[in-house]
Design a protein around this nucleic acid. Structure first.
Lengths: 169, 169
DNA sequence: ACCTGTTATCTTAGCATTGAGACATTGATG
DNA sequence: CATCAATGTCTCAATGCTAAGATAACAGGT
């Protein structure tokens, strides 16, 4: 299969050829998106059984594992907008799973914390959820999983730190 | 609802400890989500410069590289809902980048195809975009990228094929 | 021809999420 | 003090997206 010279194709069937230099990066982004979508789908179905969205579950999870947190800290950890946090905490508070607490030293700031009911709820559903993810990730051996973790950690950090694409050489 | 009637002491400690057995899977899901979010953010900013959402760009990209496609095929490739495809193709058609074509042998089906203008548009912006992703993924060497591709391919396929978490042992 | 089930797209309603701005508080600087 | 920028949360309108149902066309069997 060789590249044909060049033909300004009529509007009918013109695949743009991928420059081989970029083939791997594009592929990487594709499989990354697909893998994420697949796992997220499983996770979503699982938490939906308890009437939660993934974002709501993410809030509960981070509070479950780290204790009360300033809403801004939750925001940076689960990657949501500030308005989104307000909305999420509102909904979870209505269910009695989370409560807001004032900060003693900064009256602008509010903590969000699991209620006793919220803790009990997570005690019940979190282990199931962890098993769900484990089963969904079982195609990778424990060693491969650790390998993937290291690669993805570096990839994520690199992408976060990379300069905006708008100012490119 | 002020209610600090009997809240737990201010010095709470994290309620839920992670079972070490599941530590790696949870970590994997986290770094996968973060890496995806970081790269997606870069990609989003890049295509936003041309007034496109990531989903719109995904449609253009798949048509650019594979030629005219049944809308259902686009749907499965970019992982959107059927209604989403209608909406996306509508918007792209309004801009003159994409057009619908009837299928000769199945009158239910419609093809979506890039217009000449759409092709010219992609000729112009796609290489930039590929460079953007390449720069954002540069934390991984080419070898590491290929390694990550293989791992993520297996992970994604495994998660897609895994049975629903609801029927667990 | 006539059902029955399946496939492909479109329609509609609803929702979670974002983004921009408002408001209050804090801390630094003069 | 007084001022001004920075910070933390909340409000609100806009929007992209999904899920479910509606519509239409195909395919197979009887």
């Amino acid at each position: 299969m060789m590249a044909d010279s060049d033909s300004p194709p009529p509007t009918d069937e013109p695949p743009g050829q991928v420059n081989p230099e970029f083939a791997d990066v594009l592929k990487l982004f594709t499989v990354l998106s697909r893998a994420h979508a697949s796992l997220m789908q499983k996770s979503k179905e699982d938490v939906a059984r308890h009437g939660l969205t993934p974002a709501e579950f993410a809030v509960l999870e981070v509070l479950y594992h780290r204790g009360p947190l300033l809403q801004g800290d939750i925001q940076s950890r689960i990657l949501a907008s500030s308005g989104g946090i307000t909305y999420l905490v509102d909904r979870l508070a209505e269910r009695g799973l989370v409560e807001r607490r004032e900060s003693p030293e900064d009256r602008r700031a509010r903590y969000a914390a699991l209620t006793a009911q919220g803790i009990a709820f997570m005690d019940r559903i979190f282990p199931e959820h962890a098993r769900c993810l484990a089963r969904s990730s079982a195609a990778l051996s424990p060693g491969e999983q650790r390998q993937a973790i290291e690669l993805l950690k570096a990839l994520g950090k690199g992408a976060r730190d990379a300069p905006p694409c708008s100012d490119a050489p």
